[in-house]
Design a protein around this nucleic acid. Structure first.
Lengths: 142, 142
DNA sequence: CCATTTTAGTCAGTGACACTGACTATATGC
DNA sequence: GCATATAGTCAGTGTCACTGACTAAAATGG
């Protein structure tokens, strides 16, 4: 075994992440950091609580709160009171956040297509299937 | 596409990384951080220069130098003068570093075997081949 | 063979982002 | 209605990434 599979996965996933960040920067979302982006990607359609985001991203709620503040200042998300719980507030994507999301997905798709071209449709599908399969034993927040 | 392949790769690679860190901690290598470990993993058999390590890990040489200092304090690596270049010093694995390396490889292998059990030998081999293939277009420091 | 440029590495300063611990306010359960 | 759990914040700390400026040695090239 030259390199472990996990390291090979790390290499390619980081490559994709860097491409996405560069794409966002090039389109005016240059105040968005990697950590902020990772968290923003977890915000649900109807809004998410800070604590939920923290769990999903596997960071403490303090860190998540800090990142949400930055995202709020940047106009990417907004906070609204949670009607069902006076302690909580819901984090929702704002207009700029949705635009950034769309921008990120664009590059995500481009990379995905590049990989498919490299491997061919059959092997790309097999790759995705295996990765999804492994996720069931590797994703603690499935 | 439910989740992009790159994110699936990130999930599993992080899982493996966490297992390795936990294994190291459990065996007394509890002062070793993730960043230090990633750098230490790149130290070549005959020794490496700080600048080489920085390039391979894609960090600045200042950051690499800082991490090597920590590793040196922890007894994981040692620095010796480079006989071929008076400006440079070679970073070599020390005894404790080799022990930690062996410990990390242990868990690396365990995870690899778990994945193989999950996917079966055939699909695991196909996964590795595809990942190695993709590496050629995603690894800037191949 | 000396002047210029490149390269190895350090020092100093800053910023992002992770952590723990302590705290307030609200909700929930017996 | 009291004890406990939960949502979130505040304060403080540590790691690790960055840039910029620097020294010293090596390589290059008239």
């Amino acid at each position: 075994m030259e390199l472990p599979s996990s390291l090979l996965m790390f290499i390619s996933s980081r490559h994709a992440e860097e491409r996405i960040v560069a794409h966002l920067r090039a389109h005016g979302f240059d105040d968005l950091t990697l950590a902020q982006g990772r968290l923003a990607a977890r915000v649900a359609e109807g809004g998410s609580r800070v604590t939920e985001l923290a769990e999903a991203a596997q960071i403490t709620k303090q860190t998540a709160g800090f990142l949400v503040n930055q995202l709020e200042k940047g106009g990417y998300v907004e906070r609204v009171p949670d009607p069902t719980d006076a302690r909580a507030r819901l984090v929702r994507m704002a207009k700029r956040g949705r635009a950034a999301q769309a921008c990120a997905r664009e590059m995500e798709l481009i990379v995905e297509r590049e990989w498919e071209q490299r491997l061919g449709v059959r092997r790309m599908r097999a790759l995705r299937e295996s990765l999804e399969n492994l996720r069931e034993i590797t994703d603690p927040y499935l």
